[in-house]
Design a protein around this nucleic acid. Sequence first.
DNA 1: TTGTAGGCGTTATCAT
DNA 2: ATGATAACGCCTACAA
Lengths: 329, 329
Amino acid sequence: MVSIKDVARHAGVAISTVSKVLNNYPNVSEETKIKVNKAVDELNFVPNSVAAALSSKKAGRVALFVNLNVQTQAIDEIDMQYIQGAITKAMELNLDVITLFFSMFKDRTSEELTRYLQSQSITGIIIYGLSKEDKILHKLIDEQKFKCVVVDAPIVNENTSSIWIDNRKAQYDVAKKTVEENNCRRILYIQGKKNGYVTEERLQGMEDLVKEMGLTMLVRKGEFSELQARNITMRYGKNKDVVICASDLMAIGAMKALTEMDIFRPVCGFDGIVLMGYVGKQMNTVRQDFAGISAKAMEELHYLMDGAPGRNVTMPYTLVRMKYMDIIC
Amino acid sequence: MVSIKDVARHAGVAISTVSKVLNNYPNVSEETKIKVNKAVDELNFVPNSVAAALSSKKAGRVALFVNLNVQTQAIDEIDMQYIQGAITKAMELNLDVITLFFSMFKDRTSEELTRYLQSQSITGIIIYGLSKEDKILHKLIDEQKFKCVVVDAPIVNENTSSIWIDNRKAQYDVAKKTVEENNCRRILYIQGKKNGYVTEERLQGMEDLVKEMGLTMLVRKGEFSELQARNITMRYGKNKDVVICASDLMAIGAMKALTEMDIFRPVCGFDGIVLMGYVGKQMNTVRQDFAGISAKAMEELHYLMDGAPGRNVTMPYTLVRMKYMDIIC
DNA sequence: TTGTAGGCGTTATCAT
DNA sequence: ATGATAACGCCTACAA
């Protein structure tokens, strides 16, 4: 393996000089820069990121925390895109990435988690799908020992940025579209996880709409569960004009229930997962670019690791109507 | 951060002694073992894996190569389970993992890839979904610079193990079941990727069956594409008694086509993805435990990194019939 | 059985 | 502007 030492020898300079060139330090003459870069090319030198991480705390190693839903593999699509977006962007930015799952630290303390991350020389983390109940991760964020980007939760401090779409407006938009298209007045709204951050935002969006249009709304907690959405729809769907769900999976559950009850009610979802194309009926939904959001999160983390302060980032979304022939390939 | 030096001081021994205890070297007295372990506990010491990787080539860092299908997000489920199974097992085994995608090295040479891996101190890799066309990865395997486990491809050498299910028998089994249940004689078989390893195995299984039962079979290449399976079924399905597909996604495409053609033909798939439960009709399919296979692959890699020779590993499968109420939750 | 010391490939602090 | 040199935390001959 060719090391910085070989490059130094080949270029006829000191190791430290090579390091300076590699890391864009000032105070290096144009001339030696060229010499060094030439040597790097000729020897096909690739810096050892492990050594860099060991030697410097600022050499970036990043951990992804994914809240994998083991029961509902139908939405793995979202996590996969998160992972793919983050890793691809990290490669561009020359950051090392390790992927972790919430479930791996279920019974650990935040101290143990901190030690684990430090043992991996990790300085930045991205958290996907945090809920208020994830005490350990909240503590980790509060302690600010790591730079952090939280996807889909509004947490910001000096070392923590938040990134998500405008869930309130998105829910409002997709619901309004569905309601207007079908001339509805009585809404059944099935919301998400009790302590989820997006859950509250989306509910607000619904309340905005109800107020603005003078509608009535029954709200039920679906916990992002297809089965619960199904049951709720069976129970309350008949006397409503429309079923609006805070996730696609719940929308699918609701739609299937309605089909079995042999009544028609418009249904709309949220997220734009591919599965929506398979259920037969077309539904309005909000499409999020999960890979793009995740790539942006990685960029944001990069800023943070460079010393930038935490902040809020809002990403765009689109309204779509998903049908089979659009998603097949 | 508490280091091995702190532990040594706390236990009143030399650093190297601590290291020996940590790595289960022989020639350490029971007494000092206890002393050291006590110090480790009291200080909450967690070894820095980055430093270990730097100093020792055998300290295991592992790369996962995932062949992400960007077009068909419907099967992200499989890759997600691969990743989850591998990473979870790696944590148990104290191996570091980084995740990479085929697409990241599309335009790179195998030398570049090798250098990249070396720059990450990676000594073992797991490859998911290799096809014969992936020249770069084949070269990587041939060069044997890394320990390697290949999932779903029959490649074995001194440093490479292969792991998959018995695709030939599985295809035979699921097809036979479907054929017998419906008393079919004329088969339309839609196979997978032209140069895929499983493709050939599965075709053999079909040929075994055709020969044994004296059936007729038309074989068409579906490239694991739902759309192609759909088109093939539209074209050839009418004159056949059954459509047997080498993947679930193709089975879904075939089934949807038949529904649109308003004719009934039994269809069977392969893999057991959750999506199968959403398409309305029940279908026979082969269920693979992707997470389990991947965990096993990680174990196998661990053996290899410990000096064991490469070999073939065969995993079990089951035949299932997937319907909506089974997969919903 | 235990300890000493050199090395893994970088980065960063000093002199020069 | 450049070059020694000491970390970074751990592993591993080799010596004791």
